[in-house]
Design a binder for these strands. Structure first.
Lengths: 199, 199, 199, 199
DNA sequence: TCGTAAGCGAGACGGTACGTCGAGTCTTGCT
DNA sequence: AGCAAGACTCGACGTACCGTCTCGCTTACGA
C-alpha cells in the first residue's frame, strides 16, 4: 500500500515530546499566577518544567506565543441554553467569573490584552483565540433573537459588549475582584436599560 | 510648626531642574507610544531626554511611578453639561475617543491596565489616577439622577461601567480602533436596554 | 581460550560503515585546519561528514580521541639513511617541513600540544602517537652513534630535542612559517655547537 | 593651574575600577591553573572575581585577550650577567624552569601558543608579549658575542632557539615536566655541539 | 527467505556557557 | 547638592554545542 501522497513526511529525527510540551504549558500557567506576566522568565519556566530552554524556544519564538498558548488552555464561556436570555447570560457569566477566581485567567487576560497593542505578533495570535472564547455569548444572543426576545435588528456584537463591558472595566480598572454576585444587577440593567422612561 | 513662608525647604545645593523633569516625562510618553510598557527602558528614557539615569531615579523610585506620572499628563474625560444625560454622554465619549486617536492614550492605558494586576506598586499608584479620570462621567450621571432622568436607586458606578464597557472591550479585545461614530448607538442601547418587552 | 578462527566477534547486525568512518576523519581534519581545536564542534564534523552525531559517538568517546585519530592520519618523519648524520637530518627535516606546509599538520599539532596540558585524556592518547612520530629521528642518531659519528655517551633524546627545538620554537612562538631553507644552518649549528673555542 | 592641553579628557563618568581589573586577572590565573584554558569560562572568572560578566566584557573582547593579559603578569626570563655565556644561560634557564613549576605558566603558555594559529587576534596580541619575554635571552648572546665568546657572524635568533628548543619540546610534547636539572647538559650540549670532531 | 540485531541520518532532549542588555546603584568631575 | 556620564553587580535574554536519546529506515547475518 503506497503511503498517502501528501504525508508531508513524518519528519525525520526524534519527535517532539508531548510530555515536555504539556509540562511547559503547565509551568507557564503556574508561574503566571505566581509572578505575573512581567515577572515570568523563560528560564523560570524551563526550570519549573524540568526542561532545557532550547526545548521551549524550539516550539515558541518568544514568551508571548507561549503565554498565548498557555492561555488557550484556560476555560472560557460555557454555553448554556435555558430558553431565556437573561437566565442564559446570568449563568454563563457567573460561571465565567468563577473561572476567573479559580484559574490564572484574571492574571493572564489583562496582561495579554495590554501587551497586544505593542506587539503585532501577539495581536495576530490573540485575536482568533479571543474571538472563539466569545462565541458562546454571541450564540445566546442569536437564540434570543430567534425567539423574538430581543429586537431582530439589534447589533449583537454591541449587545455582547454592553453585557460584558462592566466585567472588562472591573477587570482592567478596578481591583480586578470579580464577584459572581455582580452578575445579576449587571445583566438586569443591561436588559432594562438606564433610561427612566419605563420606570 | 510654621516653616518660613517663602522657604518651603529651599534645601542647600543646586535645585532640581524643572527642565529635566519635563523632558523625562515627555520622553517617557514618546517611548511608551513607540515601544510600549514592556519595551520601555529607563536607559532609553534617559538617553532620549538627554539626562543621566541618576536624575531619573532621584525623582522616581522605579520606572513604574515614572510611567504613571507620565500617564497622568494625558487628558481624560472633559465634563460637559447639556441638561440631557444622553447628550452629555455622547459628547464626552466622542471627545474622549478623539483623545485616544490623537495622543498616546490608547497605547499607554492598556499597557498600564494590563500590568496593574501583577504589580501591586503600580496598582496602588494607578487606582486614584484612574478614579479621577472617571469623575466627570459619574458627575453626569449624578446630574441626571437629580434631574430624575434616571431612577434614583440606580447604581451609578454600574451605570457608568455599562456605558463605557463597550469602549473598554474594543480597546482591549478588538483592534483597538475606537471610532467616534460608535458612540451614538452605544449610548442609545445602554439607555434603552436590550430587552424587547418595552420596545 | 580459542575463539573461532575467523569470527573475531563477527557481531550480528549491520556492520559499521567504513565510508562514514573515513568521512568523519576527513571532515575532522578539514575543520581542524579551518577553525582549530577549540573551534571544532562534533556537530560541525557530523554535518560536514554527512553523518549523524550518534555515528561519531558510537566510535569515539568524545571529540578528543576523534581528533587524535584524525591527527594520526597525518604523515610524520620519513626515515632516510644516507650514511651521514648531517645528511640524514637535513633530508628528514626538510621533508618534514614540506609536510607542514602541505597538510593540516601545522594547524593541528600546536592545537593538540597546547591542549594536552589541560586534558589528561588527550595527554594519554597523544603521548604514544607523538613518540612514534619521533622514532625515525632517534633511529638516525642511533645509527650515527654506531658509526662513531657522535660520542657514544651522548643522550640521544636530548640530541634530538636540540635538533628539532628551533622548529618547535618557530612553530609555537613565531609566525608558524616553517621554511625548508632554515634546516641547513639549523642542523649545522646543532652539530658544531655555539662555542667559538674550537671554531 | 591650567590642565595639560592634550589630556584627552579624563573621560566622563565613573572611572573603571582598578580593583576589579586586578581581581579579574588574578581569578583568571587561578582558574587557568585549576581548570585549564579550555575549561576556563568567563562566567567562572566573573564569579571567582566577584564581578559582573559585563565588567569583564567591557575590558576584554573575549577570553583570549583576557588570558593574554593575565599571562603578561607572569614572570619571564630574569636577566643575569655573570661574564660567561654558559653561566648566564644556565642561571637564567634554571630560574625560568622554576617559574614554570611555581606559576600557571606551564599551563598558560602552551594553550596560548597552540591557539595562536587559529586566532589571528590572539596572534597579534601574543607576538609582542612573546618577543619581550625572550629579550633577556638574546641580550646574553649579544654580550657573549661582544666578548668574543661566540663567533661574531652567528645568528643570535637561531642560537637562542637552539638553546631553549629542548625546553619547548619538553613543554609541548613530553609530560610538560620541566626539571631545573635538565638545564646543565642542555646548555653544555648546545654550546659544544653534537659532532664528534672535537671529542 | 526472512527475522532480527545493529548501524544509519535526523533531530529533539536536559544542560551549560556564551556574549548582550537592562535594572537600579555608585562614583567621577563639573555647575 | 544636582547634573551628565558611565562603570558597577546582578540576572535574564536567545543561541550554540555538549553528549544522550528516540525515531523510522537500511543492511547483512544466520536460522
Amino acid at each position: 500500500m503506497a503511503s498517502p501522497p501528501n504525508t508531508t513526511s513524518t519528519s525525520a529525527g526524534r519527535p517532539r515530546s508531548e510530555e515536555a510540551h504539556q509540562a511547559i504549558l503547565d509551568a507557564t500557567l503556574e508561574l503566571l499566577v505566581e509572578v505575573g506576566f512581567s515577572g515570568l522568565t523563560v528560564e523560570g519556566v524551563a526550570s519549573r518544567a524540568g526542561v532545557g530552554k532550547a526545548t521551549i524556544y524550539r516550539r515558541w519564538a518568544s514568551k508571548i506565543p507561549l503565554i498565548v498558548e498557555a492561555f488557550g488552555q484556560l476555560p472560557g464561556f460555557e454555553d448554556c441554553d435555558t430558553g431565556s436570555l437573561a437566565e442564559d447570560l446570568k449563568q454563563m457569566l457567573k460561571r465565567y467569573l468563577e473561572v476567573f477566581n479559580t484559574t490564572a485567567l484574571s492574571a493572564v487576560l489583562p496582561s495579554l490584552a495590554g501587551e497586544r497593542f505593542h506587539n503585532p505578533e501577539l495581536s495576530v495570535l490573540f485575536e482568533p483565540v479571543s474571538k472563539n472564547r466569545r462565541q458562546p455569548l454571541l450564540a445566546a444572543f442569536d437564540r434570543a433573537r430567534e425567539r423574538g426576545e430581543i429586537p431582530s435588528d439589534i447589533d449583537i456584537e454591541l449587545a455582547a459588549d454592553l453585557v460584558v463591558g462592566p466585567i472588562a472595566v472591573a477587570l482592567f480598572f478596578k481591583g480586578g475582584r470579580l464577584k459572581p454576585e455582580m452578575v445579576t444587577p449587571m445583566v438586569d440593567l443591561a436588559l432594562a436599560g438606564l433610561g427612566t422612561t419605563r420606570a
